[in-house]
Design a binder for these strands. Structure first.
Length: 385
DNA sequence: AACCGAAGCAACCGCCCACGA
DNA sequence: ATCGTGGGCGGTTGCTTCGGT
């Protein structure tokens, strides 16, 4: 259960549209006193309104920097673009990274330690990132609020994309149409007494395609966490917009990043992140059209351009936001070229880096790690909750 | 002109999480 | 560890406007 309502529902607190008089009371009070505690504001301002209602009215409508009027074409394009690269609320991934300060709230339970063959210890950690999609988009559209953008998306842009044959969730050609087109094949397969394996993989393929953009983001995160600077304090947060910019190889407006209020900025020692080279993008030809049937998970990965590109099947298969598949998977993956050789130096260990040591991946030696053996089911359940 | 359904939009609801006291 | 608060989201509600008949 969530927290209790902010107002006593039976106290006769007014609801519904705000009158000009109420607006004036609210604006005048905030101009003179600031909003202070929203819970106490209604009484102090002489309003018979819930504190949350006051906050929403102020932030979504009365704030002096609010921009009214129709969205421009440029704003529309920006919203669609940002929506396509910002996934849903949560992303969960498994990463191997040098020792980090686990006290940070962004790095959850230590689950497994592996002693690297080059004496570097890597901790396998689940990173739980919270992405606030609408507010992140709103930071790029001065004067627009997250609620306004969300409403505009739901009433205009979503329909517009659907009308163009684009799935507003995946930003790819509508998969429901692909599914419909594939029904005859599935029926034929069922009729010939084949197992349902192929169609099951199809569903997984759809899910993964929908999350493709999200994994691009995670790739950036993996790079950042796999190569923290020596002796640096652990990050207290990561700036998702900076990661997005990095993963897309675009320029970064540092001033804008510094100015935004809702995302957390990377510590300055992470500036190097912003200069990362562009990632290999998922080939549109591989993902725009579904293969008729996926015979194996590895086939799916290689066809969609993920294999060897920094993300393991394990990471791909356990995104909470994409819907946990619940399937049992073994992390039989190729060692990804995650970081450069000098990034292997681990600040958390006393063992110096040997320059003659060949470059190796932090995933080295883990090709046969069986997650189901190393993590009990309750751990998975908790993490995917 | 009147009616009616669709569309648009502000506002709200319920739940959740982060954070600081 | 717990609690209060602010802030975030997806989804929904209900009023207003628009356009067709």
């Amino acid at each position: 259960m969530g927290r209790s309502p902010c107002c006593d529902q039976d106290a006769g607190v007014k609801k519904g549209p705000w009158t000009p008089e109420e607006d004036k009371l609210l604006v005048d009070y905030i101009k003179d006193n600031g909003h202070g505690s929203w819970r106490r504001l209604p009484k102090l301002a002489g309003l018979n309104r819930c504190g949350k209602s006051c906050r929403l009215r102020w932030t979504n409508y009365l704030r002096p920097d609010i921009k009214r009027g129709r969205f421009t074409d440029d704003e529309e394009k920006l919203i669609i673009h940002l929506h396509s690269i910002l996934g849903n609320k949560y992303v969960l991934c498994l990463v191997a990274c040098p020792q980090l300060d686990r006290s940070t709230s962004y790095i959850y339970t230590h689950t497994h330690t592996h002693t690297h063959t080059h004496t570097h210890t890597y901790i396998f950690t689940y990173i739980h990132i919270c992405i606030y999609r609408w507010s992140s988009i709103a930071t790029k559209l001065p004067g627009r609020t997250d609620n306004e953008i969300k409403n505009y998306w739901n009433t205009h842009l979503r329909k517009k994309l659907l009308g163009m044959g684009i799935d507003p969730v995946t930003h790819r050609p509508r998969t429901d149409l692909n599914l419909l087109a594939g029904i005859p094949n599935l029926l034929a397969a069922a009729a010939s007494s084949q197992t349902t394996t192929a169609s099951c993989w199809d569903i997984n393929a759809l899910r993964l395609q929908a999350d493709a953009a999200k994994y691009q983001l995670l790739h950036g995160l993996l790079r950042a966490l796999a190569a923290p600077p020596a002796a640096a304090a652990a990050p207290t947060g990561v700036d998702l917009m900076a990661l997005l910019a990095a993963t897309n190889g675009g320029g970064v407006d540092h001033q804008l990043l510094q100015g935004q209020g809702t995302t957390r900025l990377l510590p300055s020692q992470y500036d190097g992140l912003l200069n990362l080279p562009a990632l290999t993008t998922v080939p549109s030809s591989a993902t725009a059209t579904l293969p008729p049937a996926m015979s194996s998970f590895s086939g799916l990965l290689s066809s969609s351009g993920f294999a060897g590109d920094g993300l393991s099947s394990t990471e791909l298969g356990h995104s909470a936001s994409g819907g946990a598949s619940g399937s049992s998977m073994t992390a039989a993956m190729a060692a990804p070229p995650l970081v450069a050789a000098d990034d292997q130096c681990n600040a958390g260990t006393s063992t110096p880096c040997d320059d003659t040591t060949p470059a190796s991946s932090p995933f080295e030696g883990l090709e046969n790690l069986n997650l189901d053996d190393d993590f009990n089911s309750d751990t998975w359940k908790d993490l995917l909750e």
